[in-house]
């Protein structure tokens, strides 16, 4: 995920300071990890260094002085390029679950029991996400990002079910080498 493009995107709707950008980011992407202030400031400095953003001035608004940034024309162009570019569909996702299954087979462990526990952990997370998105008043951004996570967890579960059904064949294949 490109934090610099996301901050640039937030800046493109109007000049803003770091604290405000962090707040808007966390609101707009509720299921994402909240941005750390440090990360916001280093990212802003790099955007300025690369001439994609510039300092507009300072704003104190009664409180401490804050540097206000705005996107440059280069920044807007870069943003348009990034937003229109397709994200690469991952051909082989780094699959920790599969690695654990294979290691369990190699080490004489119990991959079936592991898959059941993993399934329970996935279901518990799916119940949490479903609660989040069905809470009355949840906004569409929250619903859609929970749906994204739910779809991926559901895909993992389907894969785990198929794998559990084929463990004896996989065990034979893994231990034959």
């Amino acid at each position: 995920m490109s934090t610099r493009h996301i901050l640039l995107g937030l800046l493109s709707s109007g000049p803003s300071h770091g604290y405000d950008l962090k707040r808007r980011h966390d609101e707009r992407f509720p299921q994402a990890r909240p941005l750390a202030y440090g990360q916001v400031y280093t990212t802003l400095q790099r955007l300025v260094r690369d001439a994609l953003a510039e300092v507009e001035g300072t704003d104190s608004d009664g409180g401490p002085e804050r540097t206000v940034y705005r996107a440059t024309e280069d920044g807007e162009r870069e943003l348009a390029r990034w937003a229109g570019e397709t994200a690469p569909p991952a051909p082989f996702v780094a699959n920790e679950i599969f690695a654990k299954v294979v290691v369990a087979i190699l080490s004489g462990g119990d991959p079936a029991a592991y898959l059941l526990r993993q399934r329970d952990a996935h279901m518990a997370r799916m119940r949490e996400l479903t609660k989040v998105k069905t809470t009355p008043g949840a906004d569409l951004a929250t619903v859609l990002s929970a749906d994204y996570a739910l779809s991926h967890l559901d895909a993992d579960l389907r894969w785990m079910t198929t794998t559990a059904d084929r463990l004896s064949t996989l065990t034979a294949e893994v231990t034959a080498r």
Binding site: H122, M123, M126, R127, L129, T130, T134, L150, L153, D154, L157, R158
Partner: peptide, 11 residues
């Protein structure tokens, strides 16, 4: 369907 089951309190 796991996505439907996720609406439940338990399973």
């Amino acid at each position: 369907d796991a996505r439907v089951a996720a609406y439940a309190d338990r399973e």
